[in-house]
């Protein structure tokens, strides 16, 4: 590229310093690349380490057996089933309640200070440490409502934990629907509920579903609150949702990782691979649902 000829009467008040500006830009670009590289590197090291340790233990027998004190016979089936049961209950509980609360906040509530306070509080609840929800679940579900240390109590506790996240994601998805969509529905003689159910909700569905699925992924990855409300680390039968002992993947991992024997470290790694795979499936599901629901949407 040919350099520009110097301006004949360059104003001495300008100091273009092109070179310095380019260097600044390059430095900043480099810093951004370094940040993302650090992140990726950490993740790769973690994954490789886990996979290498897990490889000898990952087989069908591991996936289909209950835990055992003999490493060779140990399996993870009760934890997988417990996690799936909790995931289903959490989804069934949080989806309607969270979406309904978000619809109220966006479509029905007036812009009063009470409602703003409510929204701020929900945002704060999303930041409360999960162990606090464990204490709440212990007091309310396990003891006051006498559910005992069951899957149901655990699922309800985790539902409370992720409800704020579901509500916030749904509120954002609803707010992202342009106002013109609401007017368009009203102008065709829609009642408020018809406007919400047939125009706004379908348009917000991709965002809402993504939020719900990702929040579920968070719920089934939680261990801290479940320790408080009585999940077990050694359950050899498939858990019944409303009675009896149960375990879930994160608790099972915690239990095995606490054992001194090297073999159990490997088994723990294998369980980590299982939970990572579950997370990957949920995230993929979120992507697919999003793509399917938003095929008509372009704004």
């Amino acid at each position: 590229m040919a350099a520009l000829a110097p301006a004949s009467r360059t104003d001495s008040r300008f100091e273009p310093a092109l070179m310095r500006r380019k260097v600044t830009g390059t430095l900043f670009y480099g810093a951004c690349v370094a940040a993302i590289a650090l992140l990726l590197l950490t993740l790769i090291v973690l994954l490789v380490d886990v996979f290498v340790r897990a490889a000898p233990w990952l087989d069908l027998q591991f996936l289909t057996s209950p835990p055992s004190s003999r490493p060779a016979r140990a399996g993870i089936l009760p934890a997988i089933v417990g996690t799936l049961e909790i995931g289903i209950i959490v989804g069934v509980v949080t989806f309607p309640i969270g979406v309904a609360a978000a619809i109220y906040l966006v479509e029905y509530a007036s812009d009063s200070w009470i409602n703003r306070l409510l929204q701020t509080n929900i945002s704060n609840l999303a930041g409360v440490p999960s162990i606090i929800y464990g204490i709440l679940g212990l007091a309310v579900f396990v003891r006051a409502l006498a559910m005992g240390p069951t899957i149901l109590a655990a699922a309800l506790t985790l539902s409370l934990l992720i409800l704020p996240v579901v509500i916030i994601a749904s509120v954002e998805a609803l707010k992202a629907v342009p106002h013109a969509q609401r007017e368009g529905a009203y102008a065709l003689g829609a009642s408020r509920w018809q406007m919400v159910s047939r125009s706004v909700l379908p348009a917000a569905a991709p965002g809402i579903m993504t939020g719900v699925i990702l929040a579920m992924a968070r719920a089934i990855g939680e261990a801290a609150p479940l320790i408080l409300i009585g999940a077990f680390t050694f359950v050899t039968f498939l858990p019944n949702p409303i009675s009896g002992q149960y375990t879930v993947l994160p608790i099972q991992i915690y239990g095995w990782a606490n054992r001194p024997q090297d073999d159990f470290q490997g088994i723990s790694a294998a369980a980590i691979v299982v939970i990572l795979a579950l997370m990957l499936i949920l995230n993929a599901l979120a992507l697919i649902v999003r793509a399917r629901l938003s095929r008509h949407i372009q704004w």
């Binding site: 342009p178 969509q181 007017e183 102008a187 065709l188």
Partner: peptide, 17 residues
């Protein structure tokens, strides 16, 4: 609004077929 319809400034089709 069923009797008096309205067309807006910016086209606002629904994200449907």
């Amino acid at each position: 609004r069923r009797r008096v319809g309205m067309v807006f400034q910016k086209p606002n089709p629904f994200p449907k077929s």
